[in-house]
Design a protein around this nucleic acid. Structure first.
Lengths: 359, 359
DNA sequence: ATGAAAGCGCTAACAC
DNA sequence: GTGTTAGCGCTTTCAT
């Protein structure tokens, strides 16, 4: 019972080889009762079509490939979940590869997918630099996630500037007088958010202060910045702190409380990137809802659009004059929690089932 | 520049087709300078070997497939990361499929991998029930993760009983007098942990109390149980609370503080499953270090062992009398944090870079 | 619906 | 080291 081929299924079912193939690929061309018989034979023999053979022979695959930059919590995972469910809705499978932060692995992953004849590739590149398909495979539909930029191609990213703007508007409207914003000026995501905030600050009457400590993006680092701020004399102390990442913000939140001040009574705190990691403390953090899920979904939709377009072109005689090009930004929205909204339930953040959300 | 085949690479490089193949599969058989020339040709043409063709022709793939039950935070992700890095160390690629909680998808994923001729399959099944390869593909090395059980096959799982035991021992040694344990008696993972705790309770002199509220596994649910406990008269109140999951425990922790009691001074709290989600609050939670990473690593190692064994058998004349069978439990270890250890730094939990850990 | 046959791009085995 | 060749299992097309 080693290798069951289509040939043996045909024999077992008492039909021709071609018929078995049709059952697999064009069930409409086969009489229902025959289909039944063939399926039974497949099950009896434990037949699993050899994907290599079927692709090599020109069949298509109904599998999308997704290349993740790494597998940490937050964005990439949300993207993967969104892509998964959208792909499945459309009848595609999704395989995921992880670049684990290494450009070399990223290249290898791309080569692999290119050589695997997947129906389309979703890639969240490690850096904004172009990562491209080998010249010989440019025909494979591809969508970049998490990056924007000029030039042809499809790109879907979260609107980070808008993320910052939302938080800033919230802070300004909250009645705060002195808003401190902190993060790292060398981290692209944080710079984008800061840009959004600056935009808002420009039109607002409140004081905005920008701080860059250049530290890594850990809660601990946020804690230190927060502590420093809290040690200031009361008149120079901000009454609203925006962390450009949720990890930083949650550290700052802890620092405010460690300093004996009330949140949000004395000092309000908000984060920016909707990372579930930061939603769990006993004072839930105001932040923006993760748009990664939506980015993943949209990415798959664009892949499918490209495929449809290609089909159309093939049908109407091969012109395919132009590739589909799209640049899309996914809008975030603000989640107002107890860290910045007096009166929000202290445990409000806890009824959020992160797991379910991500599925 | 549509389809670049091995043939064209050969022509471009001025060598034979077979030589190009050798560069790909047996570089040792080709003169270094020739390799150089061929590689250059590949790059120039943007050649990406057709995986289907190479597999179909009998080449092997150096790709492992990992089937995840879902993509929520915590265990599955750790497993994926562990598997990734171990696979990479051994020169394998890893592709991941997500069953998204649906047995049907799980079956489809398995079929796909079986038909894709991957070098080995790692599967974390949705339930402990057997999920098996189609009869015709039994030869593919396979390792089950997260389940244990009798019968042939390789299984690697976290030792959940031990997880409970570790936390219980910690509680007993901490000087607590009344330890409340809560979770859901219908959740296998929690039952296993509880079993470990019961074991310890049996030998201990402290009072253990087991509570099952049957609620879902969210922080909010833990908060409610915790609140109920805190409303008891002081003499009936536990001074140590163990949540059988970290989500539950973090909710309980919040409840204790909301009741105006000090943690760990008045009541200590600990969780069980090392879920990074729960490590972020401003009082970091005592829990066990995630062993998912180790499970993933070990799973890949077992896959490789199976492959080696097969090679050996093939070399020495095809007997391959017995398949490799292994049942392994991965030991957790305790992470003592401020929620149960007075004097542990209040921000100790924050210098933990979750992202880096998972990579 | 069947049977026959042509490849898909590659690997491995062969003779050179 | 090179050049040649036989499949791998499947899809598709064609005549029947």
């Amino acid at each position: 019972m080693a290798k069951v081929t289509i040939q043996e299924v045909a024999r077992e079912a008492g039909v021709a080889l071609g018929t078995v193939s049709n059952v697999l690929n064009h069930p409409d061309r086969v009489r229902p009762e025959t289909i039944e018989r063939v399926r039974a034979a497949m099950d009896a023999l434990g037949y699993a079509p050899n994907q290599s053979a079927r692709l090599l022979a020109g069949g298509s695959s109904a599998v999308f490939g997704l290349i993740l930059p790494h597998m940490t919590h937050g964005f990439p995972l949300q993207e993967a979940s969104g892509a998964q469910s959208e792909a499945r809705r459309a009848g595609y499978d999704l395989i995921m590869l992880n670049s684990a932060g290494d450009p070399e692995i990223e290249r290898a992953n791309l080569r692999y997918l290119a050589g695997s004849q997947v129906a389309g590739i979703l890639i969240h590149p490690l850096c904004a630099q172009h990562v491209e398909l080998p010249a010989s495979r440019r025909a494979i539909p591809m969508v970049y996630q998490g990056v924007i930029g000029e030039g042809p191609g499809c790109r879907v990213a979260a609107d980070r500037e808008k993320q910052g703007a939302l938080v800033a508007e919230h802070a300004a409207r909250s009645g705060a007088h002195h808003i401190a914003v902190f993060g790292r000026s060398f981290a692209p995501a944080e710079v984008d958010r800061a840009r959004g905030i600056i935009h808002v600050a420009h039109d607002a009457t409140v004081q905005f202060e920008f701080i860059d400590e250049g530290a890594p993006d850990r809660s601990r680092d946020g804690f230190e910045v927060g502590s420093k701020l809290m040690r200031r004399p009361a008149c120079e102390r901000p009454d609203f702190i925006i962390g450009l990442t949720d990890a930083l913000a949650s550290g700052a939140l802890a620092a405010v409380r460690a300093a004996g001040l009330r949140v949000p009574g004395d000092v309000a705190v908000a984060g920016c990137d909707g990372n579930p990691l930061a939603w769990i403390g006993d004072i839930p953090l105001t932040t923006v809802v993760p748009s990664g899920y939506e980015v993943g979904r949209r990415g798959v939709q664009l892949l499918i659009e490209q495929i449809e377009l290609e089909k159309l072109a093939a049908f109407s005689g091969e012109p395919m004059d132009q590739d589909l090009s799209r640049q899309e930004l996914i809008r975030p929205f603000l989640l107002q929690r107890a860290s910045s909204v007096a009166g929000a339930s202290l445990v409000g953040g806890m009824d959020f089932d992160v797991g379910a959300y991500l599925v």
